[in-house]
Design a protein around this nucleic acid. Structure first.
Lengths: 148, 148
DNA sequence: GTTACTGCAAAGGCTTTGCAGTCTG
DNA sequence: CAGACTGCAAAGCCTTTGCAGTAAC
């Protein structure tokens, strides 16, 4: 990601915070920057460990609470976690998921045709749509080999 | 659900168990029957409490382990839980989800057009598909009113 | 100056693990 | 009869909650 893109994303982030009445703190900025451009599905602990190198004073609780807050305003999402640990989807671009029901792994994929599928208006009623994705569940290649 | 449908579903269930090398036990049958036809998103504890009325000797651990086992063989699924508790989707029919990012509620909806959307073969590679669904994230009506 | 956020710590709750006994095939 | 499953209990881990101090607006 180049400088211009990063700063514009940061500005958009700040606007979004203000729109929701959230204050902009150094911690929130640091967490946002750690997530931007990432395509993983980290747990709160994973994000925390990524941050402490650059931000030794940040606490795990702040990271965890901030991630939940971000999820509430639609900046990130929580994913269909099958382990006992909550995981976040920090990829802000539109994408879809392959979800292995055996190992729990989530594999991202993109597909422009799926992106264009409209959300059926009559089905959603008064629901305010923030995003959509296709979740394909099944068995990944390594699990299939393992149990073959 | 009528008798014929229930017994055929049970037979299909038993076949699926055998196909995966799972033994058919009274507990597994009871749990399967408790799930069939349900359209909720219960936690393991919720399923357990539903069962103990009819099956006083069943243990929570068996219920929990069985649900995980069922999820592994694709009989049920785990859903994008945003609370700390794992929830299962026990509706075996094809359906889609509205997911409120604020209260975590998941609302089922059906849409035949979405059902027919093909999974892009080139994107999934060697992934064995068991099912697919659209997950629409956003804000439900009651949450929107609450924060308005 | 007010309101919201952070950091620390403890409490709480769900999930996992191990094992002996029992049951399925 | 062998392998798998159940039930019980304890251990483990993540998440939540409360509060005082601090920072954003």
């Amino acid at each position: 990601m180049n400088q211009a893109t990063e700063s514009s994303m940061t500005e958009e982030f700040m606007l979004r915070c203000r729109a929701h009445g959230l204050k902009i703190t150094p911690q929130r900025l640091a967490i946002f920057k750690a997530l931007a451009g990432s395509k993983e599905h980290p747990s709160a602990d994973g994000v925390y460990r990524k941050l402490i190198a650059q931000n030794p004073t940040i606490s795990f609780d702040t990271v965890n609470r901030t991630l939940l807050t971000f999820a509430e305003i639609g900046i990130i999402e929580t994913v269909e976690s099958h382990s006992g640990v909550r995981r976040f989807d920090t990829d802000l671009m539109s994408h879809h998921h392959l979800h292995c029901v055996q190992c729990g792994k989530i594999i991202d994929f993109t597909d422009e045709t799926l992106d264009k599928v409209p959300v059926p208006e009559k089905a959603i009623g008064n629901f305010t749509v923030l995003g959509k994705r296709m979740v394909v569940s099944g068995i990944c290649e390594s699990c299939r080999k393992k149990h073959a």
